[in-house]
Nucleic acid binder design. Sequence first.
DNA 1: ATGACGATTTACT
DNA 2: GTAAATCGTCATA
Length: 210
Amino acid sequence: MSTSRRWRRADFATEPRALARALLGHRLVRVLDGGTRLAGVIVETEAYLGVRDRAAHSFGGRRTARNESMYRKPGTAYVYFTYGMHHCMNVVCGDEGDPVAVLIRALMPVEGADQMRSRRAAHRLDNGAALRETDLCSGPAKLCQAMAIDRDLDGTDLTRAPSLFIEHPPDHGPATRRIGRSARIGVGYAAEWADRQLRWFLSGNPHVSR
DNA sequence: ATGACGATTTACT
DNA sequence: GTAAATCGTCATA
């Protein structure tokens, strides 16, 4: 079977809770200038439900230069900058114009772990300290460091760009493990939306954030 | 023009 | 466990 493993538009055109669940076990792939491939299995995600979701950047229909990508086609990357130093990456989904998305929170590295380790170490004060494999992509900003994802990739069309996309796992891959669910991380300001169970992860996977 | 705030991570007590 | 780091972005004026 030689069909493309890359996710297509229709794969992204679904509501965010279903997409958050569906992305688990699939791969986020980054191809650097020069052709080096970095990839990780998605092990943790969060759904952001758009205008009604107090925790979402698009709550209440807010639309600014920063979150413009959320209003684009499903399959668009929404990469934002926060805390003065970190980037996080979302996959825009649903219908075009409905600003819903899924935050990628953690990956299990499967290609280019050495490059990831270098990039992660470069962001630390003590860049000589040993970094375990579970320190490379176990958080939304960590994985962006490891995969060289920043605002330059905001608005990327994941169905077409050579540099960033989602892939189906190989045939006969590991069996889908148990999926855990919880409240989202870091959204305590969102009142009743803070407690909604909108985070999904592969139970017991050591690359999930803590 | 100004001030407050992060969908986080790291280092330190 | 707690707190510092660090600045783009946005709401208010």
